[in-house]
Design a binder for these strands. Structure first.
Length: 257
DNA sequence: CCCGATCGTATCACGGTAGA
DNA sequence: TCTACCGTGATACGATCGGG
């Protein structure tokens, strides 16, 4: 499941929007909020003969492609900014550090008192926006409370329950659609390197085993092979994370209750 | 420290205009 | 067409600041 640019943009916090990018945990990448372009962590991006690591690259990208976050936002449709044409123009002058007088000169007319008025009104608007944002924040928080605790339920055999198991429905869905691109009962594309994701993937793999059946090692291997080529690794992790048990001589396997 | 300039805030009047 | 809102500009008044 790919998150589209709109969604990412509107989910961003004020800080993130100010930066113009967010860190995408699922893909280990810095993603430009303005155009959804991703810069994978750990990869070096060459730009104009200089090498940039991902975070720097996304910043540089915003400068190159979008000029600045301010520039991008202020030119958004009125519908999004809530600014009138005058307010937009004046805000642009404020950004340039113009005084009221200088703005009058730049506009080729008008009165400083008008600009002063605007300056004041915009400040007031800012305060109102802050209060409104906080109100909505509180509103969302209280309505989320019911759903937010929806951490997924885990098998009792889990040996160690820590942060790796603090997985929400939403996270689980995201991870599964990333690693099982052909569907939940399809093949595994790659085995994740992060522990938390391993747990999610393993849990899904477990749905292919019957709870009360005792499997031979060969049967286990066959099932796992149909999911992922490196079935040995999967098998080892299933045991390690306590999803499965095996007999001492490793000939019999069963789902841990 | 004082004085004048400037700033921030508040209010009013007037004209334009989008939309019910 | 009426209304509500916007932009403009004037004015008042206190706060603040910088220079002498």
């Amino acid at each position: 499941m790919q998150i589209n640019a709109e969604e990412r943009f509107w989910n961003a916090t004020v800080e993130e929007m100010t930066n113009g990018y967010v860190y995408d945990d699922l893909n280990d990448a810095y993603v430009c909020l303005l155009c959804n372009e991703g810069f994978e962590d750990g990869i070096i991006y060459p730009l104009d003969g200089t090498l940039y690591e991902a975070k720097k690259a996304v910043k540089r990208h915003i400068e190159d492609v979008h000029t600045s976050v301010f520039d991008y936002l202020i030119h958004l449709d009125k519908k999004y900014t809530g600014l009138t044409e005058q307010q937009r123009e004046i805000l642009d002058y404020f950004m340039k550090g113009f005084s009221d007088k200088e703005i009058v000169e730049a506009q080729g007319g008008g009165s400083p008192s008008t600009i002063r008025n605007h300056r004041f009104k915009l400040k007031e608007k800012e305060k109102q926006a802050k209060v409104f944002l906080t109100l909505m924040n509180l509103l969302h928080k209280s309505s989320d409370k019911k759903n937010d605790d929806k951490f997924i339920h885990f098998h009792k055999g889990a040996k160690m329950v820590d942060d790796r198991y603090a997985i929400t429905e939403e996270e689980k869905e995201k991870v599964l659609s990333t690693y099982f691109k052909q569907g939940l009962d399809g093949q595994l594309d790659t085995f994740p390197s992060k522990e938390k994701r391993k747990v999610i993937v393993l849990q899904n793999i477990m749905t292919r085993f019957k709870v009360d059946k005792v499997y031979t090692e060969k049967e286990i291997n066959e099932i796992l092979k149909s999911i992922y080529s490196d079935y040995v690794t999967i098998r080892r992790y299933l045991i390690e994370y306590g999803f499965m048990n095996r007999s001492r001589d490793c000939t019999e396997y069963w789902v841990k209750g």
